[in-house]
Design a protein around this nucleic acid. Structure first.
Length: 424
RNA sequence: GGAGAAAUGGCAGAGUGGUCGAUUGCGGCAGUCUUGAAAACUGUUGAACCGUGAGGUUCCUGGGGUUCGAAUCCCUAUUUCUCCGCCA
């Protein structure tokens, strides 16, 4: 959520940057917010004045009662009846105005960093770098959804029977590969100074608002209506919300956490070959890294995190490229996002496996996650997160890129975790 | 699930209708002492909003109520603890 004071003081800048994000009706909404805020100030002044008067009288009554001047006290009491009515009226209108402001404010996306390229679609994203060589496969190479069947690693049909499309069953060496990747990712993150946590995978609505999934992406999350809880779409939600309503110590920054969780996404309305096999699932596994940092350091941190994720891909010997997302392709709360994509050899296309973003104060403002700066004043920290990494598409490209006529080679770094070096 | 108790500032913990936004301790910050540090001592130390300012308003888990006046009384939700039941 944007800070209202910033909107007031920097209206032109706000509009310019919202335009980069292709946010519709920016001007109308920002103008209404400012107008409502003016009304709010007026309403508060009125309410405050009435209350000040009422408080004053209450105090006088207290004095009079103490000194036994009962009659005078009664006279004053009579005077307060009217005050109470207008107090209620002003409070009510103040409350309504504040609610209206909040309702508008939560629909406004974060402002993109000024380095964010303009653009509307994924085609407008900027390729920052490309690493590794694209493998040349043998003549009988297959896409991963055939390899998983051939080697009995993943049973998509069985998942359909148990739950529905997009809920695969990993079996035998396929399940083992999942576990190996999770452990490998967690070990790397821990070695890089991230503290491992195991958060709940159901969260309340407040947490959904805290990180910005609500109200923006209401329909994307599975919702257990009986208990009003949401299945997390990413570990970012619980891990970042650990710092909701927390005043962190400046000396504790940066706070680095990582965690493995399953992730659940409804992905309503996406069908076809782009979502085949492991390309897009309703349930998948992911290790997430999350940092709460000093505002001055957040862009350095973003680069560190990108570097960390890149190294994972290098160690897994997967060809990858890094994209700087354009305004139109960035998520609601992000100020700057890098996507990392690996090459899927049999499908002949890039698959997104990680998204690393700086949210600046967008989340921390909603979360009320602050620290006291050198001047003793509380200020919002910056929050960042990144996938490190999401498993399904990593598995897809590992299987496809490493397939040989003799079987599928396991990358060296994973062998200690999985216990064999070839799936054949 | 049943019965009872509780929820106060970064933390601990007083406060049961009227100068209480809240005693005190710890922690934090500043200073005295010290070559420096520790100890000791002194001072200081919650947040949001309105106002150029003086100052004002709100916040004692959330929501509602009683009252001229609520941290304090009542209702309600949530959470925690104790006992019982159930249970991986």
């Amino acid at each position: 959520m944007l800070q209202l004071s910033y909107i007031r003081d920097n209206k032109e800048d706000v509009l310019k940057r919202l335009a980069i994000k292709n946010f519709k009706d920016a001007e109308t909404i920002i103008n209404s917010v400012i107008e409502l805020d003016n009304n709010r100030k007026m309403a508060q002044r009125q309410a405050d004045d009435v209350k000040a008067e009422a408080n004053g009288i209450a105090k006088q009554i207290g004095e009079l009662m103490k000194t036994g001047k009962k009659e005078e006290a009664e006279t004053l009491k009579a005077k307060t009846a009217e005050l109470k009515l207008s107090e209620k009226k002003f409070d009510e209108s103040l409350k309504h105005i504040e609610e209206d402001i909040h309702k508008l404010l939560v629909t406004v996306p974060n402002l993109p960093n000024l380095n964010v390229p303009a653009g509307k679609t994924p085609e407008d994203n900027v390729v920052v770098n490309e690493h590794g060589t694209i493998p040349v496969l043998h003549a009988k190479a297959q896409p991963h959804w055939e390899l998983t069947t051939k080697y009995d690693l993943i049973d998509f049909e069985l998942g359909v029977k148990l739950t529905g499309a997009g809920f695969p069953v990993y079996k035998g060496r396929g399940a083992r590969l999942q576990r190996a990747l999770i452990n490998y990712f967690l070990d790397k993150a821990t070695a890089a100074g991230y503290n491992e946590v195991q958060p709940p995978i159901l969260v309340n609505a407040e947490s959904g608002y805290g990180t910005g999934q609500l109200p923006d992406k209401e329909g994307q999350m599975y919702h257990c209506q009986v208990d009003d809880l949401y299945l997390i779409p990413t570990a970012e939600v619980p891990i970042t919300n650990m710092y909701r309503d927390v005043m962190v110590k400046e000396s504790d920054l940066p706070i680095k956490n990582c965690g493995y969780t399953p992730c659940f996404r409804r992905e309503a309305g996406s069908y076809g070959k782009d979502v085949r096999g492991l390309n897009r699932l309703h349930q998948f596994d992911k290790v997430e890294i999350v940092q709460i940092v000093h505002p001055e350091k957040s862009y350095d941190t973003l680069e560190d995190m990108r570097e960390f994720v890149s190294n994972l891909l290098k160690e897994l010997e997967l060809p990858y490229r890094t994209l700087k997302l354009c305004g139109g392709d960035m998520s609601f709360g992000s100020a700057l996002t890098y996507d990392l994509e690996v090459w899927s050899a049999a499908q002949g296309r890039w698959l997104e496996v990680s998204s690393v973003s700086n949210f600046e104060t967008f989340q921390t403002n909603r979360l009320k996650c602050r620290f006291k700066g050198a001047d003793g004043k509380p200020q919002f920290a910056h929050s960042l997160n990144g996938s490190a990494l999401a498993l399904p598409r990593i598995v897809a490209s590992l299987l496809e890129n490493n397939q040989t006529e003799a079987g599928i080679k396991i990358p060296k770094v994973l062998v200690p975790y999985i216990g064999f070096d070839m799936i054949s």
